Simulated assay, not measured.
Amino acid sequence: MNSGEIAAMAGVSVRTLRHYHQVGVLPEPPRRANGYREYTVRDLVLLLRIRRLAELGIALDEIPSMLETGRRADAVLDELDRELAGQIERLTARRAAIARLRAAGASPDTPPELAGVLGAGAAGGPDLPPEVLQHDREVMLLLHHRLDEDGRAALAGLMSQVTEPRVRAATTELTARFAALAPDAPDAEIDRLVTAFQSVLGHLDLAGFEDVDPRIGALLTAYQESVFNDAQREFLARLSQVVSEGTTPAAPTP
């Protein structure tokens, strides 16, 4: 048999056959006078055994010792079974994440834990400009990536509160006002918006955000500088201050 014939009989490609030769798992047979390899039925049997082991997922460098002695068969199969069990668990988790994203109408890059609050219609949905929704998603992605497990749970809990029907209408209206802030908006307008936001935040449970890593704050500041105008950044700075200090901004001048 030549290489094409034995490959066809074994159900592998000629390229795979040559790869087995190159890595040393399948010895090369002698060549005929015309330079072509001459395979025997024994070569076919060995190739079939290699194919079966490879299909199980056994690494090629493990196969020669198994073929020679079989002593490591149980250990290799146990290890392979554990690896496959882990893969099944990871794939099952991925499918569950996909299902959550689909159910929420969320984009594929949304953390599954936040799918319900960042999906279509959540947190203002179509009532807010697309760029505002995009900013919200990007901030949530940054936070989710940098927070630890407890912080992520706190973030999901906070976003669930924000998207409750009784709160969502207020936050949507205030977010729209924030988006409409002109770069040269007067201090009085900024302070009125801070007061309005603080009123809403006062009804939310902010547990879990008391000791946020300063590096996260620096990251968010860098993001804000890249997407928001001067008045919007000033608003965020004032809001952060009054929330952290538990104070109320001075009454704005009418």
Score class of each variant (00 low, 15 high):
I6G: 13
I6C: 10
A8H: 13
A10P: 02
G11E: 11
G11D: 11
V12E: 10
V14F: 07
V14A: 14
L17H: 10
R18P: 04
R18H: 15
R18G: 05
H19I: 06
H19S: 04
Y20S: 08
V23K: 05
G24A: 13
V25A: 03
L26T: 09
P27A: 15
P27G: 14
P30R: 12
R32A: 11
A33D: 07
N34W: 02
N34P: 00
G35N: 14
G35C: 12
T40Y: 00
T40M: 00
T40D: 02
V41G: 00
V41S: 01
R42P: 00
R42K: 06
D43G: 02
L47A: 04
L48E: 06
R49K: 15
R51F: 07
R51W: 09
R52T: 13
L53N: 07
E55P: 06
I58E: 09
D61N: 11
E62R: 14
I63V: 15
S65G: 01
M66Y: 03
M66G: 03
L67Y: 00
V76G: 06
L77F: 15
L77P: 07
D78E: 15
D78K: 09
E79S: 11
E79N: 09
L80S: 03
L80Y: 04
D81S: 09
E83H: 10
E83A: 11
E83W: 05
E83F: 04
A85Y: 02
Q87P: 03
E89T: 15
R90H: 12
R90V: 13
A96R: 13
A97P: 02
I98Y: 12
A103L: 05
A104W: 12
A106I: 05
S107A: 15
P108V: 08
P108L: 05
